Amino acid sequence: MRALVSWAIVRLGHLRWFAAAGRWLMPLDRRLIRLTDGRLSVTGWRTAPPTLLLTTRGRRSGQLRERPLLYARDGDAYVVVGSNWGQARHPGWSANLLAVAAGTITVDGETTGVRAVLLEGSERDRVWPLLLRVWPAYRDYDARSGRSLRIFRLEPVRSAGR
């Protein structure tokens, strides 16, 4: 059943109405991830596309902002894309990371500090297929948005004592 749900979500991800619904489900997803320590998400169970909870500081407000995001692993780092469901504008969290390249991520109930690096050129091209394996609809969002989607590598910050 879980595999069927995951398959359906990935297939539906390409459709405009699904992207519109996804924007409205974000607050629910944030709560569900937090309450279940990452075991559940609106996108399904652990077999669904991997989801992390990114916390950034608002570039204007200074307030903490949480956003569930799909991710791909790249070594010990996490790669995320600012698709904004294919809208013409970049998502706010990506502008927050451009202003302050630091935040935290919560994956499977574990919270880790990260340093964000905006990927460009060949490095961006290298990770794009990793993201498409996680969520093939990113290709549609890229075409629909009319902009270059921001891709970030979130590198865990190691404390001096470790």
Rank of each mutant, 00 (worst) to 15 (best):
A3F: 08
W7Y: 12
R11C: 07
L12E: 09
R16T: 11
A19Q: 15
A20S: 10
A20W: 12
G22Y: 08
W24K: 14
M26Y: 06
P27I: 10
D29A: 09
R30M: 07
L32F: 10
R34D: 08
R34Q: 11
L35C: 04
L35T: 01
T47A: 10
A48T: 05
P49V: 11
L53K: 03
G62L: 09
R65V: 15
R67E: 05
R67T: 15
P68Y: 01
L69P: 02
L70F: 07
Y71C: 05
D74I: 02
A77E: 08
A77H: 09
V80T: 04
S83I: 08
Q87I: 00
A88M: 09
R89D: 13
R89P: 00
P91Y: 06
W93H: 05
S94G: 05
N96E: 08
L98K: 07
A99I: 01
T106C: 03
E110I: 01
T112L: 04
R115I: 01
A116L: 06
V117F: 00
L119F: 05
L119M: 05
E120K: 11
S122C: 03
R124C: 02
V127H: 00
V127S: 05
L130M: 04
L131H: 03
R133D: 12
R139G: 12
Y141F: 08
G146P: 12
F152T: 07
L154K: 02
E155M: 06
V157R: 14
R162V: 14
